[in-house]
Design a protein around this nucleic acid. Sequence first.
DNA 1: TTTAAATTTCAATAATTATTGAAAATACAA
DNA 2: TTGTATTTTCAATAATTATTGAAATTTAAA
Lengths: 169, 169
Amino acid sequence: MNYGEARKRFIDAWGTLGSSWGISRTEAQIHALLMVSPKALTTDDIMGQLGISRGNVSMGLKSLQDWGIVFKEFEPGERKKFYRTEKDVLKLATQVAKERRRREIEPIIDMLSEVGDVKDANVSKEQLEELNKMTAALSDFANQSDRVLSQFIKSEKGWFFKTMMKLFK
Amino acid sequence: MNYGEARKRFIDAWGTLGSSWGISRTEAQIHALLMVSPKALTTDDIMGQLGISRGNVSMGLKSLQDWGIVFKEFEPGERKKFYRTEKDVLKLATQVAKERRRREIEPIIDMLSEVGDVKDANVSKEQLEELNKMTAALSDFANQSDRVLSQFIKSEKGWFFKTMMKLFK
DNA sequence: TTTAAATTTCAATAATTATTGAAAATACAA
DNA sequence: TTGTATTTTCAATAATTATTGAAATTTAAA
């Protein structure tokens, strides 16, 4: 397979995958492009290479910066800004996990503690018990996941997989 | 908080969360409803309680069955079918992880191995190296994630968290 | 400052995805 | 079987989300 084809396949696949970790197709494509680019790119580079509008690129870069995986750079003498991405795949996964935790797990933990223990005379004991049982189980699970994820985030490069590999022989 | 409010909050929050693990809002709400229902429900129960159409419920139940987290049940003497969900939260997470692996990680591994090692004379050495470096890194990462996930799936209840907790002290 | 390049915003529109509801298909008691 | 309850499918439509492009804003060199 030649360079052009491979590059296209890579960007497309990354774009499709994006939706499964909560990033839009275009954002994931911008990210993929930055992943395979040896040097930082400008807005115009990205517009040209992906064939999308200036506004779209601007919004995509903003979102990727909010995720903490793309960074803006100044080049002395250049008026345009340059963008690069984190290329260490483990750091990338860690950063995404950290953000997802903040965006997804935390609100669920909040909801569950708010719902708390329900008491209500106008409802069957069975229904009450079921709701309480489910909120308690989810609360436990969310807290445990949160703790595991926190540790994963704190862990330094290599540690996680080294440990895992040892565990799984 | 009374039963009705708590139940509503629970279903809404679960619905919102759904999108982050690749399930539509309605599907996640059907799932939440089954989670807090002591007994299996019929299509009409679900239509009534969520206020959505018959077709929507039918499609939602189909998708949840494809995910392997909702099951159809016969009741002797009853013409209607009843639906229940897996209520063990860890089993639920395991089943979702298994499906996601199949749907997301496997295609990426396939793509990466297809792209393979690129050789191309018409492109700078730097560009070639960058693409090869990224595909190799992602390939490693995807394979490792896949292996960890496989083991997680094979593990029985309790094992994963017990080990984790020991590890993290 | 002033000027022009660069970036961001956002209303309009396009594209995609979800939902309905009724017709077709299926399941099952009699 | 036949008749009817139940479920599924799917074309039409609604709702949502993504994208454009040009005006407004910001940035920095002169």
